[in-house]
Structures are given as C-alpha cells and as structure tokens.
Computed example of a mutant assay.
Amino acid sequence: MTEPQTHRTFEDLVAEGAAVPTEGWDFSWFDGRATEARPTWGYARAAGRRLARASAALDIQTGGGEVFDFALGTAAPDRPRLLAATEGWPPNVTKASALLSARGAVVVALPEDAPLPFADETFDLVLSRHPVRAHWAEIARVLCPGGTYFAQHVGPASVFELVEFFLGPQPEAVRGGRHPDGERAAAEAAGLEVVGLRAERLRMEFHDIAAVVYFLRKVVWMVPGFTVEEYEPRLRALHRRIETEGPFVAHSSRHLFDARRPARRP
C-alpha cells in the first residue's frame, strides 16, 4: 500500500528550487512539476536533417550543448566535417565542451555580444536555439553564399503572465520585443533572405513553487536580478494561488527562422 504524500511546506519547496544546479539546457528536472507544449515544427530533429546535408556548421549560444548534440545524433553518420559552437556562460562552456567533443565539435567561449571569431564565409549552416539576441550582420558574414541560418527564437511577451506576476504590468515596448516582424527586417537589412518564418504561442503550467523558483533562476532574463529573498512575498502569494487554484498557466512564444545568404551570381 502506498503511503499518502506528505504535504510540503512553502519553505521546503523554495529550498528545493533554489538548490538545483542551473548550468546547461537540460530541463528534465521539471518532469511532473511543470509542462510546456512544444512547437509543431520539432526544431532539434529539423536541425538534424539540415546537418545531414551540411559540410560546415556552427551552433551559436549552444548552452550546455544538449540540443546541438541531439541534432548531431539524428544526423549521424552524415554530419558536417567542420563543427563549432559558441557559448558565453563558463559553466555551460565546460558542459558543452565535454558533451560535444565526442561529436568532433569545438566549443568557443564567447560573450553574447562579441563578434564571431570565424573567417568570412566559413559555414554553410548556422544554427541557434533561443539566442539572447541574433547578431544578424555577424551571421551573414560567416555564412557561405547560399548558406542557411536555421534557428528557433523566443518571441514577444514570452511567459509574461509569470513575469508580470512578479514585476507588474510591463510597457508595450517591452512586451513587443523580439517580434518576428522586427527580426525579419533586421535579417533582411543584414543581407539575408528570409525564406521561412513560423510563430506559435504555447501553453505552460507550473505545478509548484519550486518549479517557479528554478525557472526564474535558470532563465535569468525573465525577472532580472531574481532572488528568493527579494521576491519572497510574491513567491508566497503564488504558492497560495497554486495550492488553492491549481497550476499557474503561462504561454511561451516561439518562432522558427529559415534565412539564407544569397548565392553569388555567375
């Protein structure tokens, strides 16, 4: 006979969410505690199909390398001869280097805003999943003529139900940031042709306050400077809400970019 689950206090849950390591982009800890619907296009597998046709590929802001590693696994044995990735956060650089070296990929430690340390026209495929910001001129520079930028971006007002619970209503300029139309214009201004752009808004559920704490610690740009101590009153209020009303519902925003550097004319 299974014993009934002991009710867990606010303090216990918050302590658990505050103790989980945040390096990498492995979100398996959330299993049973939070859910997020996935975009219909299946980015990692779609990236794997692109990798199987590429000769030189770069993954920008690779995190812990988990998504790039999965995509390379689906492309094997037809993966590119030249593989590189960039990442700015030191714990992620260490994790990605250990993971991707087995695939023959070199991971370069690089701040998010720094120019890419690669020669012009080096790659025929550039990938990125959830870059903080796309540096379109640099992407266009390192792409070969005819090469492709294939990426999944975070869209406008993503998870803003949670953001505004902690920070209050946000200005429209903030809510509308990362809009796919604005990013399309920036890509085209850098000389790229946007051949495909899809957007979806996806349901998320947080089932306990530990998941909220971990999420805000891991995705640091949601509530900048988040700490349990500073936001303890709002965390308590959200804990009570989840206990009385059920999961806290938010919506993520994602868009898929398929952009191409024009081929040279004969």
Score class of each variant (00 low, 15 high):
Asp78Val: 01
Leu83Tyr: 04
Leu216Ala: 08
Gly104Lys: 13
Gly42Phe: 00
Glu121Cys: 05
Leu100Gly: 04
Glu23Ser: 14
Asp258Glu: 15
Ala19Glu: 14
Trp41Asp: 09
Asp208Ser: 04
Pro131Arg: 07
Phe30Trp: 06
Val159Gly: 01
Arg178Ser: 13
Trp89Gln: 01
Gly73Arg: 07
Glu138Asp: 15
Pro39His: 03
Tyr231Gln: 12
Met222Ile: 01
Arg49Phe: 02
Glu87Val: 13
Asp12Phe: 00
Gly182Lys: 03
Ala137Gly: 13
Gly155Ser: 07
Ala46Leu: 05
Pro80Tyr: 06
Val219Cys: 11
Asp113His: 13
Thr6Gln: 14
Pro21Leu: 08
Gly104Ala: 04
Ala151Tyr: 06
Ala211Cys: 02
Gly48Met: 07
Gln152Ser: 13
Phe226Leu: 09
Phe30Glu: 03
Lys218Ile: 04
Phe166Cys: 07
Ser158Gln: 05
Gly65Val: 06
Ala114Arg: 13
Phe118Gly: 15
Gly63Tyr: 02
Glu200Gly: 09
Pro4Val: 04
Ala151Phe: 10
Ala173Lys: 12
Pro111Phe: 05
Asp26Phe: 03
Leu216Asn: 05
Cys144Trp: 02
Ala186Lys: 07
Phe10Arg: 10
Ala157Ile: 08
Thr62Cys: 10
Arg53Ala: 05
Leu202Ala: 06
Tyr43Pro: 04
Phe160Pro: 06
Tyr231Lys: 06
Asp208Val: 00
Pro233Thr: 10
Thr35Pro: 01
Leu192Pro: 02
Glu230Trp: 01
Ala37Gln: 13
Val93Lys: 09
Arg201His: 10
Tyr214Arg: 10
Leu202Met: 13
Arg261Met: 10
